[in-house]
Amino acid sequence: MRFVLASASPARLGVLRAAGIDPSVVVSGVDEDAIIAGLGDASHIDTVTALARAKAAAVAETVTTTHTDAVVVGCDSMLSIGGELVGKPGDPATARDRWSAMAGRTGELLTGHAVVRIEDGRRTEQATGTQGTTVRFAAPTPEEVDAYVASGEPLAVAGGFTLDGLGGWFVEGVDGDPSSVIGISLPLTRKLLAEVGVSVVDLWRQ
């Protein structure tokens, strides 16, 4: 049985490898903005769950011919803070503004998960869920923010920060699952795998 990660995130891949799984990586290529636009006034939890479901479904469609026995796992992370749901800043100005708004505050990093089971080359079962983790941000100086933005790291990560990289210097603490903040919740993924009839220990590298 293959574990297929429907994500290009090196952080998610790193979490899984450190936890004993060597997944195949297949990027979904879904249009996230279009999906969000189609959701209308969906809740923050429903939004990240829908994105994760779309990613897993898209990859499952492409791998059924090459992976006749597999689980496809898709994830999507966004930061809920001040009533707003924010994703990747994308450019330095947005990242700098984001940190001005986050400094000294608390937000909830939401990571949607979707697991699709493939058996005999066809999709058989699916399970979804979302993990929320409270993140307490420090108040970096303007010079520190400028240096962090100049590093390029915050531009392409949910909420404009990391826990396992340079951004970790500016996170006072987390209340909940740290692996979910990095990009994939190990406890939730284990539960979702069980829902589709797969034990995580059977996926560990031998």
Rank of each mutant, 00 (worst) to 15 (best):
F161L: 05
A158G: 12
G176W: 07
A138D: 12
V149S: 05
A101P: 00
G168N: 12
V174G: 02
D146R: 01
G160S: 10
E144F: 03
A147V: 04
W169A: 15
A127Q: 10
E153T: 11
L155Q: 01
V174Y: 00
A158H: 04
R122P: 00
P154M: 07
E108I: 15
G173E: 03
A147P: 05
Q131H: 05
G132T: 07
Y148H: 14
A147H: 05
E153K: 12
L110S: 13
L109N: 15
E125T: 02
V171S: 02
L155T: 12
T134M: 13
G168H: 12
G132D: 12
R123Q: 15
V145W: 01
F137T: 08
T162V: 04
T133A: 13
S180M: 08
A158N: 04
T162K: 07
R123P: 01
T128F: 03
E144A: 15
L155G: 04
E119H: 13
W169D: 02
S151K: 06
E108D: 05
S180G: 15
E153S: 10
Q126F: 00
V174C: 04
D175I: 04
D177S: 11
G167I: 03
S179F: 03
T133S: 12
A150K: 07
A138I: 00
G160L: 13
V116W: 05
T162Q: 06
S180E: 05
E119F: 00
R123K: 15
E119P: 00
A158S: 14
S179Q: 09
A127N: 07
V135K: 02
G132M: 14
R117E: 10
T130I: 03
R122L: 11
E143R: 05
G152A: 12
Q131I: 10
G159I: 06
L110R: 11
F161A: 03
V157K: 07
S180V: 04
A114Y: 03
A156V: 08
G167K: 08
F137Q: 03
P140N: 11
V115W: 08
A101D: 10
W169L: 15
L109G: 03
V115I: 08
T134E: 12
P142K: 02
S180I: 09
A127Y: 10
R105D: 13
T162C: 06
V174K: 00
G104H: 12
E144M: 11
A150M: 05
D120M: 01
Q126C: 11
E143T: 10
E119Y: 01
D177K: 08
G152W: 08
P140C: 05
S179W: 08
T111S: 14
D164A: 15
T111Y: 12
M102N: 14
L110H: 08
G165D: 07
D164L: 04
A114T: 00
E143A: 14
R136T: 14
L109K: 02
T106L: 01
V149N: 03
V145E: 03
T134Y: 02
G129Q: 09
R136W: 01
A139Y: 01
Y148R: 06
A147W: 04
F170K: 01
D164C: 03
R117I: 03
T124G: 08
I118V: 15
Q126Y: 00
T162L: 06
